[in-house]
Amino acid sequence: MQALPEHEPAVEALMLASRALVGLTVRALADVGADVTIPQFRSLVVLSSRGTMRSADIAEELQVNPSTGTRMTDRLVGKGLVRRVRSTDDRRVVQLRLTRAGREIVETVMAKRRASLERIVAETATHWQPAVTEALTAFATAAGEMPEQEWWMGWARNADLSD
């Protein structure tokens, strides 16, 4: 579906902003020396925000095939960033949980991204009227993102620091 002509400037601005935000993430990942791709990092963020999940649930969240989700999580397990745990309700169900190293990568990358965003927002402060902030918040909500304070609280709720 193509954007209506009156929406095209917003779509173009979001495309540009999206590229900039991905660039911030790539630079932050490079700064921490994490051997993690953007899709793998997104999986780590999903686990950090949603808590323990099955591989199929992560694939659904990322809107990829289950086999793609399994391969991605297998790589994260191999890197020591995610570990498999048996469900306490049904031992046949294998769930995934961030390890301490996985949480540290997410925390460090997010902190670096936040610092970059704070710098950029300070440089463009005259453009940040409440309507812009409200529009971006509504956009993120419509895209299914949680506010940062909610998923950080999820860490405390779902934290298991044993690796």
Rank of each mutant, 00 (worst) to 15 (best):
L161H: 11
P130D: 03
A131M: 06
D90F: 12
D163V: 12
T70L: 10
D163A: 14
T137Y: 02
V85F: 02
D57G: 00
A28M: 07
S48I: 12
A111F: 00
V36F: 09
M53K: 02
D90P: 10
E118S: 13
S48P: 06
I105Q: 03
A122F: 01
A156L: 14
V45R: 11
D163E: 14
V32F: 05
R91G: 07
H127F: 15
A115S: 09
T133L: 08
N158H: 04
G78K: 14
M15N: 03
S67V: 13
V26A: 14
I120Y: 11
I38N: 02
A156K: 12
A28G: 13
E12R: 03
W151A: 12
A138F: 02
V26C: 13
A143L: 15
E104H: 13
A17E: 00
G144Y: 11
L4R: 05
G51P: 06
R113G: 01
V94C: 05
R103L: 09
R114Q: 05
A28W: 08
G102D: 11
G144D: 09
V45L: 15
D57T: 00
S48F: 11
R42N: 10
D160H: 13
E107C: 04
R42P: 00
L76N: 08
A143T: 11
S18C: 01
R42F: 07
A30P: 00
V77G: 09
A131I: 03
M110A: 01
S116W: 05
D90Y: 07
A143I: 08
D31E: 12
V22M: 09
L14S: 06
R27M: 10
K112N: 03
R50A: 15
T52Q: 02
D160F: 04
R75G: 14
V45A: 14
Q149Y: 12
L136N: 04
I105S: 03
E123N: 07
M72V: 03
N65R: 13
D74N: 14
I120K: 10
A138K: 06
D35R: 03
E12H: 02
A56D: 00
E150C: 06
V94N: 09
F139R: 11
S116N: 06
G154V: 14
E12W: 03
P9G: 01
A56Y: 00
R157K: 12
T141M: 12
R75K: 14
D35C: 04
M15Y: 01
V82Q: 02
A140H: 08
D160G: 10
T133V: 11
L21H: 12
R119S: 12
D89L: 07
A17Y: 00
L161V: 13
T73H: 10
W155R: 14
L96H: 03
R84T: 02
M72Q: 08
E104A: 11
Q149S: 15
R97A: 07
T141S: 13
G69S: 04
E118A: 11
V94I: 07
E145M: 11
R54E: 07
Q40E: 14
D57W: 01
R97N: 03
A13Y: 00
M146L: 15
E148P: 02
